[in-house]
Structure formats: structure tokens, C-alpha cells
Amino acid sequence: MPDDAVSPESRAAVYTSVAAGGRLLHELEIKRSRFITVLQRTPDEESARALVSGLRKEFHDARHHCSAFVLGPDRGVQRSNDDGEPSGTAGTPMLEALLKRETAPGVTDLSDIGAVVVRYFGGTLLGSGGLVRAYSESVSAALEAVPLVRRQRLRICSVAVPLASAGRLENELRAAGYVMAGASYDAQTAVLRLALPDDPAGLAHAADRVAALSAGSAALLPGESEWSDVAIS
């Protein structure tokens, strides 16, 4: 897959991707040519290339296995491949369909996604314009059907409180809109875990809220940050 663009190191804290753990297959027929689109979460180049390799084996009798993928929170890695179609008629329109997909009104932040369009030639030449439309429409139609999730950089923080007051504090934190990430208990203490946006202002506000709700008896301890899937409401 030749390079299309590489941007500086990613810094985004939120972006959109397809749901992990599966793949979507969509088929479009144009003048007896079959265009089979497969979309899948691809968190890195290795998984994106593995997707293409696997589909070459699965659809081994197809004429073309054209591909495009976008990776990283800032969509810093973008690749496409025409796989034998005339230059610029397959991979580029596929990549454009990924990049221009709106995940909310006016928002184009889809990333960590691989798209492969498998073409079975039907005997009729489509011409350059027809191929561009076919590959673009194939990916766009598949994107309409694929489940999306919000990917957010969250910091897992902990609050240690006496066991007797843990339930009340947890309920109050949930009521305040915080995302709880589990808890652990021993004979006298509970450790509540919160998943918080990974920014200084948000962490400071959460620390103040924990202090206020616990009358100063508990403190928020920031832990490691990680990318998490958040359902789109």
C-alpha cells in the first residue's frame, strides 16, 4: 500500500471509530461487476495489512482487492492501494469516503478503520469515472450500516473511602455524571475507580467534587490513561 499522507504525532483526545470485535460486509452490483466492501477496526498498520491479506485468501478468485485505511486519533496515517485498477480510480476514492464520513453534523473524525473492496469483474468496462463512483459508493454505503463508537482518552482514577460510606459516594458520583470504572473492597475500605477525561481542568474539577462530596475525607488519585470506547448516544 503506497503512502498517501502522514501527519505529525497524534494529540487528539476524542475521535470516532467502528465498533471493535467484528467486521461489516456490504455488496454492491454495478453492470454485473460485484463490489464487496469489508470494514473493520484496524488499530495499527499491521492489522490493516492483515485484513487485506486475509481477504486476498478468502476471495482468492477476485480480480481486485483495493484498500484504504486511516489510523490514529488525529488520522495521521492514511494509505490506499488501487490493486491493479487504473491509478486513482479505487484506493483514493475509498480513502476520501472514509475521510469525509460525518460522524456528527459537521464532524469528520473517523479513524482506526480499514476498508477493502473486493471486485469481481462482470465483463463491462466502467471507465475511470464509473470506477471512481463505484468504489466511493461502495465504501459510503457500507459506512451507513456499520456501528460507530466514540474513542476517548480517559484517565483511570481511584478514591479510597471507608466501606460504610462507599455506596453513598458512588451513587453521588454517578448522579453527578461521572463514569465509574469498577471498585475493589477489603474488610474496611473500598476503592472506587472513575474514568475521567484526560485533561488537567477536568481532573482538577473531579478532585474538587470528590473532596466536597466526602467532606474532605477522600482524595482523587490519578492513575494511568487509556483509550476507551464510549457509546454514541
Rank of each mutant, 00 (worst) to 15 (best):
Asp3Asn: 11
Ala5Ser: 14
Val6Leu: 14
Ser7Asn: 06
Ser7Cys: 02
Pro8Ile: 00
Pro8Leu: 01
Glu9His: 12
Glu9Met: 09
Ser10Phe: 01
Val18Lys: 07
Ala19Cys: 02
Ala19His: 01
Leu24Pro: 02
Leu25Met: 10
Glu27Gln: 13
Leu28Ala: 14
Glu29Gly: 01
Ile30Gln: 13
Arg32Gly: 00
Ser33Asn: 09
Gln40Cys: 10
Pro43Ala: 06
Pro43Phe: 04
Pro43Thr: 04
Asp44Val: 07
Glu45Asn: 04
Ala48Asn: 10
Gly54Ile: 01
Gly54Arg: 15
Lys57Arg: 15
Phe59Ser: 04
His60Arg: 14
Ala62Ser: 09
Cys66Tyr: 03
Cys66Leu: 05
Ser67Arg: 02
Ser67His: 08
Ser67Thr: 11
Phe69Gly: 09
Gly72Glu: 03
Pro73His: 02
Asp74Thr: 05
Asp74Glu: 08
Arg75Phe: 07
Ser80Met: 14
Asp83Pro: 03
Gly84Ala: 03
Gly88Val: 05
Gly88Ile: 06
Leu95Gly: 06
Leu95His: 04
Glu96Ala: 12
Glu96Lys: 11
Leu98His: 10
Leu99Met: 12
Pro105Leu: 06
Gly106His: 07
Thr108Lys: 13
Thr108Gln: 14
Asp109Phe: 00
Ser111Pro: 11
Ser111Trp: 10
Asp112Ile: 05
Ile113Phe: 05
Ala115Leu: 06
Ala115Val: 06
Val116Arg: 03
Leu126Val: 09
Ser128Asp: 15
Gly129Pro: 04
Leu131Trp: 04
Leu131Asp: 10
Val132Trp: 01
Val132Pro: 03
Arg133Tyr: 01
Ser136Phe: 04
Glu137Gly: 02
Val139Gln: 08
Ser140Glu: 14
Ser140Phe: 00
Leu143Gln: 02
Ala145Asn: 13
Ala145Phe: 00
Val146Met: 00
Val146Arg: 00
Pro147Met: 08
Pro147Lys: 07
Val149Lys: 05
Val149Asn: 06
Arg150Leu: 14
Arg151Tyr: 06
Arg151Trp: 06
Cys157Arg: 03
Val161Gly: 09
Pro162Gly: 12
Ala164Lys: 13
Gly167Met: 04
Leu173Trp: 10
Gly177Asn: 13
Val179Asn: 12
Gly182Arg: 05
Ala190Arg: 00
Val191Met: 06
Ala195Leu: 03
Ala195Gln: 07
Asp199Glu: 15
Pro200Asp: 13
Ala201Pro: 02
Ala204Lys: 15
His205Phe: 11
Ala207Cys: 06
Asp208Gly: 14
Ala211Met: 12
Ala212Ser: 13
Leu213Cys: 11
Ser214Pro: 08
Ala215Thr: 11
Ala218Met: 08
Leu221Arg: 15
Glu226Ser: 15
Glu226Tyr: 00
Trp227Pro: 11
Trp227Ile: 08
Ile232Glu: 13
